[in-house]
Simulated assay, not measured.
Amino acid sequence: MALGYKARRRWALIILLVGLPLYIIAAVWVVALFDRPSVLVEILVYVGLGVIWAIPFKFIFKGIGQQDPDDRE
């Protein structure tokens, strides 16, 4: 069953306010487990991890910035 517009908006908000900070903490912790690489490699790792977190949630964020399609004004 597909999520409705309002449910997707709620889930997007929860993901951004709760999930993203937890993911950032986990990414920093994982990178800190290894010896510190060069700055360029570290930036590439963080950019890669920053893109990877959003891929599974693409269907939730798609169309959230648009007007509610169920709103019949």
Rank of each mutant, 00 (worst) to 15 (best):
L3T: 04
L3A: 12
G4P: 10
G4F: 15
Y5H: 11
Y5I: 11
Y5Q: 05
Y5F: 15
Y5K: 04
K6P: 00
K6L: 15
K6C: 11
A7H: 10
A7D: 14
A7N: 05
A7I: 10
A7C: 09
R9G: 06
R9S: 02
R10Y: 05
R10C: 04
W11P: 00
W11G: 01
A12G: 10
A12H: 00
A12M: 03
L13W: 09
L13K: 15
L13G: 10
L13P: 00
L13E: 12
I14R: 06
I14G: 02
I15W: 08
I15M: 03
I15T: 06
L16P: 01
L16K: 12
L16A: 13
L17R: 10
L17T: 09
L17D: 05
L17Y: 02
G19N: 01
L20S: 06
L20D: 06
L20I: 15
P21A: 14
P21E: 11
L22R: 09
L22F: 14
L22Q: 09
Y23K: 10
Y23P: 07
Y23R: 08
I24C: 11
I24H: 01
I24V: 15
I24T: 06
I25Q: 08
A26I: 04
A26T: 08
A26P: 00
A27V: 13
A27L: 13
V28T: 10
V28H: 08
V28R: 08
V28I: 14
V28K: 08
V28P: 00
W29P: 00
W29K: 00
W29C: 02
V30K: 02
V30H: 01
V30L: 12
V31R: 11
A32H: 08
A32F: 06
A32L: 06
L33Q: 14
L33K: 07
F34L: 11
F34Q: 12
F34M: 09
D35V: 04
D35C: 02
D35L: 05
R36F: 01
R36T: 08
P37S: 02
P37F: 07
S38L: 12
S38V: 13
V39P: 04
V39S: 13
V39K: 13
L40C: 03
V41A: 14
V41C: 06
V41Y: 12
V41N: 09
E42G: 12
I43T: 15
I43P: 03
I43V: 14
I43W: 12
I43E: 13
L44F: 12
L44A: 15
L44K: 11
L44S: 14
V45M: 07
V45E: 08
Y46L: 15
Y46E: 04
Y46S: 01
Y46M: 13
V47E: 08
V47R: 04
V47N: 03
G48W: 02
